[in-house]
């Protein structure tokens, strides 16, 4: 066998292995998605949305408390994290630029994006839960805000820097002060990009479970008071899934399904935005 024949055979073997690993990867991934959709749709019905969690064995059991809690916790986190992240990103792109300080903030934010979220939970426990004396929705929101901040900050920074310098110069040439140039020209130019970053940031924190375990904790009843422990879809899902009761596990799947669809939906919308932007 010549060397070239050997190379051709090795090539075929490696390429088959590569295709095989792609198939293995896809199998697992479709398996997970399939399980999610089948169990989720089976578990979903009207009471899932209209009722709060009931003890095992009760027919009328749902996720209303968790859905509303989730909305509150993530909503408050986004309400704080989005503007803060955008303003911080604005500083990096428009003022700090390539200064030492801006670079350090970028690096630290990048690291924070991959840092373990459970540690953020521990931190918020120490600074919020302990002084308050009990778990609360606020504590959960604060943990999620801290996680969201670097994500929004970095995408805003990147997206603002994509706005051409000539656009800024043209606005300055008309005599506009810098903050007006930023608010009225730069933001407008980067609108789609920032929106994409916001969607991805919200999607990311919406799936967080670990930092909520000991901040917002859980509540089996409907609660809209942020200063009390609050249910979230993720923690509820964890508690129900690890319970020994079949009807609770079923609710867990319903929660998993709703959560995944929400997060995938946000990701798909963000992608469509980005594609449109690139298409322009």
């Amino acid at each position: 066998m010549t060397h070239t024949q050997k190379r051709i055979i090795i090539n075929k073997v490696v390429m088959s292995l590569s295709t095989l690993s792609a198939m293995i990867g896809m199998t697992f991934l479709f398996w997970i998605l399939g399980v999610l959709v089948i169990n989720g749709i089976e578990a979903l019905n009207w009471t899932t949305f209209s009722e709060v969690g009931a003890p095992p064995g009760y027919e009328e059991s749902g996720l209303k408390h968790a859905l509303i809690g989730q909305l509150y916790i993530v909503g408050v986190a986004a309400f704080a994290g989005v503007p803060l992240g955008i303003l911080a990103g604005t500083y990096l792109s428009e003022y700090g630029q390539k200064s030492r300080l801006a670079e350090i903030i970028r690096d630290v934010s990048d690291i924070m994006m991959s840092a373990p979220s459970i540690v953020i939970g521990a931190f918020v426990y120490a600074i919020v839960v302990t002084p308050m004396g009990h778990f609360s929705g606020w504590a959960g929101s604060i943990a999620l805000t801290i996680i969201m901040l670097p994500i929004i900050l970095r995408t805003t920074d990147d997206m603002l820097r994509l706005v051409p310098a000539t656009l800024r110069e043209a606005a300055f040439a008309l005599g506009a002060p810098k903050y007006k140039v930023i608010l009225q020209v730069v933001y407008r130019g980067a609108k789609v990009g920032i929106l994409t970053g916001v969607l991805l940031g919200v999607a990311r924190v919406a799936g967080e479970t670990a930092p909520l375990l000991f901040t917002s904790f859980n509540d089996n009843f409907l609660n809209t008071d942020m200063s009390e422990p609050m249910a979230s879809l993720t923690v509820t899902m964890y508690n129900y899934a690890t319970s020994p009761y079949e009807d609770w596990q079923k609710l867990g799947w319903a929660a998993a399904f709703i959560l995944s669809m929400f997060i995938l939906g946000l990701n798909i919308i963000a992608r469509v935005f980005l594609m449109k932007k690139r298409g322009k």
Binding site: I32, A206, T234, A241, G252, W253, S260
Partner: peptide
């Protein structure tokens, strides 16, 4: 997209399946 699915889902799938 699968990289965006929260880890809690992977954990739950792992436990049951």
């Amino acid at each position: 997209l699968l990289a965006a699915i929260p880890s809690v889902i992977y954990g739950m799938w792992g436990l049951f399946y």
